[in-house]
């Protein structure tokens, strides 16, 4: 998905993981994913560059679909579709 498509997604839940450090964003994402409907979309906001690697790997490992990422100054918005 390109940036415009990602920005126009209907997001079911926003997880603001800014300021939390490893493994905080992963745990926040896991917790939040349980609260959205199947095929729903979660947005994870992180200020930690490591998260941009970890979240896509986590998503594919546990069976969710990583849609893409939007980069903004000092933060990243990652989009994941619930797959299970």
């Amino acid at each position: 998905m390109n940036v415009d498509e990602l920005k126009s997604l209907k997001v079911d839940k926003v997880v603001d993981a800014r300021g939390t450090a490893c493994p905080g964003p992963l745990l926040d994402a896991k917790r939040a994913m349980g609260s959205i409907p199947m095929a729903g979309v979660m947005e994870v906001i992180s200020s930690d560059i490591g998260t941009t690697q970890d979240i896509p790997l986590w998503a594919s490992k546990v069976g969710h679909q990583y849609l893409g990422m939007v980069t903004e100054p000092g933060l990243w918005r990652l989009y994941i579709k619930r797959g299970k």
Binding site: C22, P23, L26, L27, K30, D54, W58, K61, V62
Partner: peptide
Amino acid sequence: MIIANGAAAMD
């Protein structure tokens, strides 16, 4: 503990 939590988060 960080490794354990990461692995558990990955099911």
